[in-house]
């Protein structure tokens, strides 16, 4: 598998995971992530994307197999040990899907201070980092605001700031654009693009296929059976309609055109055209074939 730019940041080897008393939600997943890569994990709801991110961040540990960061296995003991644990936490940032869960401090300033203070850094150093990060993301005016009073887009940016203040080299993003309006989405994508330009490794879990070309150079596809079923470029993955249909990321859509019913694969985000007599418009890559006359 990949590992294009130098040594692997993450190595996942045959990792499976099941929450206690539940069916497994990851089944024998293996892959490696190289430094500076932009990776997207896609899959239907419940396919295990978020769980995989949790494993990568050492929040949960695989029931079998292993997850390593820079060659060191992530275990509970390793993360509680002094130099590795705190360094890993500063090095790998996790952007949660739910900003309410991520932003638990009374003010934006406290939010940014939380991570650095946990690292035991000096107060004046912490204060300088906060000021710089606020300036970088242009959210200085939010400094004294309460997270509960911010808009969804502002909350996302503050959450990102609370990670950047730790100077991470990897960002794990769980549905980063979920619930954001188009303007906030493009703003966030712009910021992420800039971060990637500075060499930060980005790993995003999403089911938003339109997002893929913007946030990833490589896409991993998880099936509803919680297995890794594809690993390729966004272009390749998006073109493989039978794969996307098989993992339930797109659906077959029936159209009635006079006497004809077309069944064609459909990405919910792509506007489709109903032009008659357009042979290229329908039926492409449809595993069940093209139109059928209605009985």
């Amino acid at each position: 598998m990949s590992g294009s730019a130098g040594a692997a940041v993450f190595t996942v080897a045959d990792a499976s995971f099941a929450y206690p008393a539940h069916a497994p939600c990851l089944d024998g997943v293996s892959f490696a992530v190289g430094r500076g890569e932009r990776l997207a994990l896609v899959g239907a709801n419940g396919s295990g994307k978020s769980t995989l991110l949790h494993l990568l961040d050492g929040l949960y540990f695989p029931s079998s197999g292993s997850v390593s960061y820079l060659g060191r296995p992530l275990t509970e003991a390793a993360l509680e040990a002094a130099p590795f644990g705190p360094r890993f936490r500063a090095d790998v940032g996790f952007l949660f899907q739910n900003s309410d869960a991520q932003l638990f401090c009374p003010t934006v300033e406290d939010e940014l201070a939380f991570g650095p203070l946990q690292m035991g850094w000096r107060q004046d150093d912490v204060e300088r980092r906060i000021a710089d990060t606020l300036a970088l993301l242009e959210i200085g005016r939010l400094r004294a605001r309460a997270p509960a009073s911010l808009s969804a887009g502002e909350q996302k940016r503050v959450a990102l700031a609370s990670l950047l203040v730790l100077a991470p080299s990897v960002l794990l993003l769980d549905e980063p654009t979920g619930g954001l309006d188009p303007r906030s989405q493009s703003l966030l994508l712009e910021i992420l693009d800039g971060l990637h330009g500075r060499g930060i490794t980005l790993i995003a879990a999403t089911h938003d296929l339109t997002l893929l070309p913007h946030i990833a150079d490589r896409v991993l596809v998880l099936s509803e059976e919680h297995r890794l079923v594809a690993d390729g470029t966004p272009g390749n993955v998006l073109a493989d309609t039978s794969l996307l249909l098989a993992v339930n990321l797109i659906h077959a859509h029936a159209h009635r055109h006079g006497q004809l019913v077309h069944t064609h694969p459909h990405q919910h985000v792509v506007a489709h055209e109903h032009a008659h007599g357009d042979p290229a418009g329908h039926g492409h890559g449809d595993p069940r074939g093209g139109g059928e006359p209605e009985p």
Binding site: D57, R89, F96, D110, Q118, V126, L166
Partner: peptide, 20 residues
């Protein structure tokens, strides 16, 4: 549960430290 994860993800080990 999610807040706990978010705290651990940013290095929380059980000791509370607030801004001076």
């Amino acid at each position: 549960d999610n807040v706990t994860l978010a705290m651990i993800a940013r290095g929380f080990t059980g000791e509370v430290r607030l801004l001076r």
